Simulated assay, not measured.
Amino acid sequence: MPTTAPLLSLTWTDHLTGRRGFLVVDRLVRGVASGGLRMREGCTLDEVAGLARGMTMKEALHYDPAGRYVPLGGAKGGIDCDPRDPGAYALLVRYLRAMRPYVESCWTTGEDLGLSQDLVDRAAAEAGLVSSVQAVYPLLDDETAARERLADAFALEVDGIGLDELVGGCGVAESVLVALERAGVPHPGTRVAVQGLGTMGGATARFLARAGLTVVAVADIKGTIANPAGLDVESLLTARDAHGTVDRAALRPGDLELPPDAWLSTDAEVLVPAATSYAIDPANQSRVTARWIVEAANMPVLPEAERLLTARGVTVLPDVVVNSCTNAWWWWTLFGDIGPDASEAFAHIRHAMRTLVTTMLTRADADGTTPRTAAHAIAADRLPVIAERFGWYG
């Protein structure tokens, strides 16, 4: 999809700390855009703009003319601060107060890298907002019923983990399974390494392990935990803190503690970068021996690195497809395509992702391109249809 200037791009400077925050609205549909809010040290306006473009595509890729969920435009927010900083929460509240006119009118947001949904919700309430997604309420047929449905869905837990923390990883795992099945590779014996054991990485590891794959390495901020015979994923998930860091006391005999970047060269068929952007660059891509890289994080593989990886036979499944189900699940639930039920949510996600990933890989094969190029082409086909049917400004 060709890069165009975003509809709105702004930089906010905190009057107390001098730290900066950003908001980019790439596109509106019916006057509303969707995209999470991230917090990390070093976050930039260019990064947020790229993520906002990605959200435009994620929304378009899930367009179903028969569905109740109408895709929104794409947007993203970012704050340049370490989420572990003692002043991070107060900074988040001040950012949301500054962004209140946009959240109230056109930007629906939620958790992203560095921030949990609970934290965003608490800060939004303190900033005087009704909800982080209140801009979409005027588009709903029955706002009260929709909000109750979403609240009920967020209250659900599956084996001790909130449904909202599992839906994204379910979509990532399904992407992996479709790619393996198309290549005729059985689930048992297929090894996986995951960078990041937060919301997305942890859920992905759980679903892949339960599908019969062997998770041989996971990485967090302290380092890489590896075991060629397979890690006890459930034990590691139980031993995480709020930032996805594993208590090493939970490791078993045979589990190895390796450097933080060791996940990259793990002897595995599938790599799942599920933490930071720009994790795989032209310098370190040569260490990758996996057959597939599945982008659970946003923008983890730099473009030049992807070109080099593709040239040596590594397939990159792009973030705009792979990690799109956290966002889509919100809207499927809020608009009423699914109810507040875990089984229904997982079934809907699996069907949607199988359809989308299959369409993307089939298009890539037919056009002789990469999956990312195919995904962008599908989005480019759908965006004019959405714009013509619904309009930018409502």
Rank of each mutant, 00 (worst) to 15 (best):
V385H: 13
L317W: 02
L113W: 07
S105Q: 13
P71C: 02
A123C: 08
L271K: 06
L237M: 12
L308H: 01
A217L: 03
W329L: 08
T3G: 12
T199A: 15
A5R: 14
E157V: 11
A125S: 12
W107C: 05
R363H: 08
W12M: 03
L113P: 08
E41K: 13
C170G: 05
S286F: 03
P101D: 07
M360H: 11
V246D: 01
P303S: 06
E59K: 07
R20T: 11
A123W: 02
A311D: 12
A274K: 00
R191V: 04
A279Q: 12
T355N: 14
T11P: 03
V272T: 10
E41N: 10
L236R: 04
L129E: 03
V218F: 06
A275V: 04
R307I: 09
A242S: 13
C106V: 14
I386H: 01
T245R: 13
R27S: 12
L302S: 10
T224C: 11
A123Q: 01
R30Q: 14
R287Q: 10
I338N: 05
D381G: 11
A98F: 05
D159N: 07
T4M: 09
G254N: 09
P138D: 10
M353D: 03
R100K: 13
L113V: 15
T199R: 10
V24G: 03
G198W: 04
A145I: 02
T238L: 15
A374D: 00
E157D: 09
L302C: 08
E165N: 13
R40H: 12
C170V: 07
F346Y: 08
T199G: 12
P384M: 11
P186C: 10
G77F: 05
R252P: 08
R100T: 13
P260C: 13
I378L: 15
Y95D: 01
G212H: 02
G336W: 07
H348Q: 14
P273M: 06
V103F: 07
R350Q: 07
G196V: 02
A88D: 01
D141N: 12
H15R: 09
R94F: 00
R191W: 01
L264K: 08
T358L: 02
L334V: 13
T238N: 13
L115G: 05
G77M: 06
N327F: 01
G313Y: 12
M1L: 14
L61G: 03
A60S: 15
F335T: 00
E157L: 12
G128D: 10
D80K: 02
T4R: 15
A242G: 13
H62G: 06
L163C: 00
V294T: 05
V185G: 00
L258Y: 05
R248T: 13
T108Q: 10
A364M: 11
V218M: 04
A242R: 14
A125I: 08
A364K: 09
A124D: 01
P300W: 04
F22T: 06
A60F: 06
L113Q: 14
Y95M: 01
H15E: 10
A66W: 15
R19Y: 06
A98M: 04
L213H: 09
D46M: 02
L10K: 12
G74K: 07
V314I: 07
A275I: 00
L37G: 04
L237G: 05
Y393R: 07
T3V: 15
I280E: 00
L72S: 10
A250D: 07
R363F: 04
D261I: 00
L231E: 03
E111M: 04
R20E: 11
E257R: 15
D220E: 10
A211K: 03
G87W: 05
